[in-house]
Computed example of a mutant assay.
Amino acid sequence: MRLVTWNVNSIRSRVDRVLAFLDRSQADVLAIQETKCRDDQFPTAAFEAAGYEVAHFGLSQWNGVALASRVGLDDVATRFPGQPGFAKTVADDAPDALLDVDPPIEARAIGATCGGVRVWSLYVPHGRALDDPHYTYKLAWLEALRTSAQTWADAQDAVALMGDWNVIPLDTDVYDAAAFAGKTHVSPPERAAFDAFGEAGYTELTRAFLPAEHTYTYWDYQQLAFPRNKGLRIDFCWASPAVAERATGAVIDRDERKGKGASDHVPVIVDLAD
Rank of each mutant, 00 (worst) to 15 (best):
residue 115 G to C: 06
residue 100 D to I: 11
residue 93 D to Y: 04
residue 108 R to Q: 03
residue 67 L to F: 11
residue 92 D to V: 08
residue 164 D to C: 08
residue 64 G to S: 12
residue 140 A to N: 04
residue 147 T to A: 13
residue 101 V to N: 13
residue 165 W to Q: 09
residue 57 F to N: 08
residue 128 R to E: 15
residue 119 V to M: 08
residue 108 R to S: 04
residue 145 L to P: 06
residue 164 D to V: 11
residue 43 P to Y: 10
residue 44 T to Q: 13
residue 129 A to R: 12
residue 122 L to P: 10
residue 120 W to M: 13
residue 35 T to N: 13
residue 145 L to K: 03
residue 83 Q to V: 07
residue 104 P to M: 11
residue 122 L to W: 08
residue 150 Q to N: 02
residue 114 C to N: 09
residue 129 A to E: 11
residue 147 T to M: 05
residue 99 L to A: 05
residue 72 G to V: 00
residue 124 V to R: 02
residue 88 K to V: 15
residue 49 A to Q: 15
residue 170 L to H: 15
residue 76 V to L: 01
residue 156 Q to N: 13
residue 120 W to F: 15
residue 168 I to A: 10
residue 64 G to P: 13
residue 80 F to V: 06
residue 71 V to A: 00
residue 66 A to N: 10
residue 164 D to F: 04
residue 151 T to E: 14
residue 152 W to F: 11
residue 172 T to G: 03
residue 88 K to A: 07
residue 166 N to W: 03
residue 127 G to K: 06
residue 70 R to G: 00
residue 44 T to L: 10
residue 78 T to D: 11
residue 163 G to V: 05
residue 80 F to S: 06
residue 151 T to L: 12
residue 94 A to F: 00
residue 69 S to D: 03
residue 137 Y to Q: 03
residue 115 G to F: 05
residue 84 P to K: 04
residue 62 W to C: 06
residue 102 D to F: 04
residue 76 V to P: 00
residue 117 V to Y: 05
residue 99 L to D: 00
residue 104 P to G: 09
residue 51 G to W: 11
residue 130 L to Q: 09
residue 153 A to R: 11
residue 155 A to G: 02
residue 140 A to C: 03
residue 44 T to A: 14
residue 65 V to R: 07
residue 52 Y to T: 01
residue 165 W to F: 15
residue 152 W to L: 12
residue 74 D to L: 03
residue 170 L to K: 14
residue 117 V to A: 06
residue 64 G to I: 14
residue 45 A to K: 12
residue 119 V to A: 07
residue 93 D to I: 02
residue 160 A to P: 10
residue 120 W to D: 02
residue 80 F to N: 02
